[in-house]
Amino acid sequence: MTAPDAAPVRPGEELPLEALREALRGRVPGDVDALEVLQFPGGFSNLTYLLRLGEQEYVLRRAPLGPLPKGAHDMTREANLLSRIHPVLPVAPEPLLVVEDAGVIGSPFYLMERRRGTVVRTSLPPEYRELPGAPERLGAALIDTLADLHAVDIDAAGLRDLGKPEGFNRRQVDGWAGRWRRAREALKDTGDLPPPAELRDELVIAWLEAHTPNETAHALVHNDFKLDNLMLDPRDPGRVVALLDWEMTTLGDPLVDLGLTLTYWTMPELPGGAPNRVGAAAPGFPDRDALVARYEARSGRRVADALPWFEVLGHFKLAVIVIQIFARYRLGQTQDPRFAPLAKQAAWLMRRAWELIRTQDARE
């Protein structure tokens, strides 16, 4: 079966084939001399490739190009996480090989098993359009997978050392606020962001700091849980084949995941500017309240009253993620043209976070 989502490698993101062949030779099954490399076009962070070694296929993950924040995009950590999570949560793909030598392709990387399925990005794909109830089943699969992730017994699975859940919410605010300010400083002379008085970014940060709740639970947190990080059965949008992109996974408050998931689900446009035709505003898809109700039913926990703070954090966190990517693009550290609209997207997210705050304050 071919890889419908894989395409020729983007210019500037090619892999050094000879060095890669030698690094793989004798370490994984397959015909290394027949190596063929394609690239998965989705995502704005780590680079993901399809490797074909004759009849064998693998997925390679590496950090993005350009200078990176300290500790970010750690492929060795991500592979180690997957090796421990895969046995207790089978939707997590199995890592097969880690290469820590950055000299091979320009950064450490790892190979994981190749899983086949449908990734839904901005619209319902053709294979689902004639299936009865496909939008509702897709939304259910999204939220059920999130609840199941949070239901993993971190102590029984031996995962307690993956992070420090105590104080997680406060660290989220402090960490993302610092990243936002550094990216804003890097762009201060470019005119790409509105002035702080218009953007209200510092007011958003101050509100998050003043209202930071204690953790509602200690759980495995994916930290970037969204629809296009799921791979689905092409014949059944209600069956998840894989959950991808585990780079930021840690232990913390599960509502941080839910808040970000709802952020993505309710946005009119997804990062990059594509209209969101698979979210809360699209015909047939469950709305925000329906997702929350299903999460409560699946998890057995009442969460609706606590969610406003986490949804503000979700909008703020996504604003930081996209402005960091845009800053790398604006400063010439990466050439991917998909990044050009991200400054406007970050500004929209920040303004939306402020609107949510004003709505919440009016209710109190």
Rank of each mutant, 00 (worst) to 15 (best):
L65R: 14
L65K: 14
L65M: 11
G66E: 04
P67E: 09
L68M: 09
P69D: 04
P69C: 03
P69E: 02
K70V: 12
K70P: 15
D74G: 03
M75F: 03
M75P: 15
R77G: 12
R77L: 14
E78P: 07
L81Q: 07
L81A: 09
L81D: 11
L82V: 08
I85T: 07
L89K: 10
L89I: 02
P93K: 14
E94F: 09
L97W: 03
V98N: 05
V98K: 14
V98S: 08
E100K: 02
E100V: 11
D101V: 12
D101A: 09
G103D: 04
V104L: 04
S107I: 01
F109N: 06
F109R: 02
Y110K: 01
R116V: 14
G117W: 05
G117I: 09
T118I: 05
T118E: 13
T118D: 08
V119G: 01
V120I: 12
T122A: 14
S123Q: 15
S123D: 15
P125W: 04
P126K: 00
Y128W: 03
Y128C: 00
R129Y: 11
G133K: 10
A134Y: 14
P135I: 09
R137V: 12
R137N: 05
G139R: 07
G139A: 05
A140E: 13
A140Q: 13
A141I: 06
A141Q: 02
A141E: 01
L142R: 00
L142E: 03
L142S: 06
I143V: 15
D144W: 12
T145R: 05
L146S: 06
A147I: 09
A147D: 05
L149S: 03
L149V: 11
A151T: 01
V152C: 08
V152W: 09
D153L: 04
D153Q: 06
I154A: 06
D155N: 13
A156E: 14
A157K: 00
A157V: 10
A157C: 04
R160G: 12
D161Q: 05
L162V: 01
L162F: 07
L162D: 08
L162K: 00
G163T: 01
P165W: 08
E166N: 08
F168I: 11
F168D: 02
F168N: 04
N169Q: 01
R170L: 12
Q172V: 10
Q172T: 01
Q172P: 13
V173A: 07
D174Y: 10
G175F: 09
W176D: 03
A177G: 06
G178A: 00
R179A: 15
R179H: 10
R179K: 10
R182I: 10
A183E: 13
R184C: 02
E185N: 08
E185C: 09
A186W: 03
A186I: 04
L187F: 02
D189C: 01
D189K: 10
T190C: 02
T190F: 13
G191F: 07
D192L: 02
L193K: 00
P195I: 00
